[in-house]
Design a binder for these strands. Structure first.
Lengths: 258, 258
DNA sequence: TCGAGTGTGTTCGAAATAGTTCGGTTCCCG
DNA sequence: CGGGAACCGAACTATTTCGAACACACTCGA
């Protein structure tokens, strides 16, 4: 594989899933860690991504503040991957599903490109990209309309109206926070609106949230905890939260990363 | 094997697989590395592929939508640029405009990123990208929903419905063909639907079509020639067509490239 | 037959790419 | 807050690739 191609592929991946790990890329492309680091360095020099400890993330002009955050988001990739893997098992050929915006749902998307006759509705441009590039011809991908948020989600009245005309079997909802009091939350008012419309349009709701989301409260509530039919999280969640959630959510699934 | 044949084969291969290696081609065609390099250089000079260390890739490595979009946007670049420049003059700060999908409208988009308080509705992901990357904070960009065509346009019932709820001052419509009998046409049924919805939603219609579009008939008609309020084309158009159009279209604008 | 033009091969120093080692840093977890 | 594991980047080496320059073979028209 050409170095150039490898770099382009890495960039695609970063954009689709929000982050990559050096070790993961090295194994995948069969080159040394150092080579991957040099690739990341080259891409970072051109401002196409941001290097962090352990890998790289998308360059986010807005949230350049908290230094630990970006590094952490890369490190939770194992959790996200495990959650996505489990979520993918809920999908059957021919289903009509919805995917909200978010890095976990983007990860899930990559595991769904091989499902036959799938219909996917999403308000996330990166998620649509994953299917567009790697999907099967018998899959249908519908992008909802709307205006674009910094995280590449489409939101606003146009998005809500578009979603309102559709009816899906299953919604996979990625959230930014979950707590007993506020339920599932996001930091963006418009995105919460779009997410709520997705919930309305779907028969069943599957929430994807790694353990770090517990206790985090975004400005805007989407729905209460109990509204989810299934909640998939990872084993990093403490005992107390696990008990509370298992009493609140009809089906709580806890996965073990790696 | 003739050099010409070899180059054509190389080009096919690059387009099919996304990238080739010098060493691989040299072995395959039984010629020296240097000869392959010279072939690649010749192809790269014509903008048909991109040379990289070790081989060559498609012109826009990393984005898989090469065949639909990037390849075509080189053709008639001067004409398109001149048309886009003239079209941009029709836009005022604060306007709410729509841009259809197409290379000419993408060109126009680049000239509109500095217009204050502009609201832009488009069903083209590349056009939305232009504003997202280079636009002003006081601009609003609305992407219509829908499924994605090979040329990165969003079409289908979702797109039509989303467009139907909106009302714009001005629509810039890029077309694939125009003729007296068929009017403005595109090669894609669904795209024609979306375009027609855009026409419905807009107060005024400005069609952008370089002279090569004249006489070309796509499978699907959008609207008749006379439906346009303004048609902007270039001076490559022959006298006969010019006369006919000036009698049919309320306002015919002919620009001189360069 | 000559000579220009084209296509190809070879040689060789420079540049790009990739692997390894190693000392230092960062981060996680108890 | 301390130990251990993972990670980082600099430095060095080996390999591959690049491109300029020159040489050779062939074609074609004068």
């Amino acid at each position: 594989m050409l170095a150039q191609q490898r770099q382009a592929a890495i960039l695609d991946r970063v954009r689709a899933t929000g982050g990559v790990r050096v070790s993961e890329l090295a194994a995948e492309y069969g080159v040394s860690d150092m080579t991957i680091r040099r690739d990341l360095e080259a891409l970072a020099d051109r401002g196409l991504l941001a290097k962090v400890h352990g890998g790289a993330t998308t360059v986010s002009p807005g949230s350049a503040h908290e230094p630990g955050f970006a590094a952490k988001s890369v490190r939770q990739r194992d959790e996200k991957a495990a959650i996505a893997m489990r979520a993918a098992a809920l999908v059957s050929p021919g289903d009509a599903i919805a995917l909200s915006a978010g890095t976990t749902t983007a990860e899930l998307a990559q595991r769904l490109v091989d499902v036959p006759s799938l219909t996917v509705v999403t308000n996330s441009i990166p998620v649509a990209d994953v299917f567009y590039r790697g999907g099967r011809p018998d899959q249908t991908v519908v992008l909802t309309g709307g205006t674009r948020t910094p995280s590449d989600a489409l939101v606003g009245p146009v998005a809500v109206a578009a979603i309102g005309t559709l009816h899906l079997d299953l919604l996979f909802l990625g959230v930014h926070g979950m707590s007993e009091r506020a339920g599932y939350t996001t930091p963006n008012l418009m995105e919460a609106d779009a997410d709520r419309a997705l919930v309305q349009a779907s028969e069943r709701l599957v929430v994807l949230a790694d353990h770090t989301k517990w206790g985090t409260v975004g400005i805007s509530s989407i729905v209460p905890l109990s509204r989810a039919d299934v909640l998939i999280t990872d084993s990093g969640l403490d005992e107390e939260a696990r008990t509370l959630l298992s009493e609140t959510v009809p089906e709580l699934v806890v996965v073990n990363p790696q």
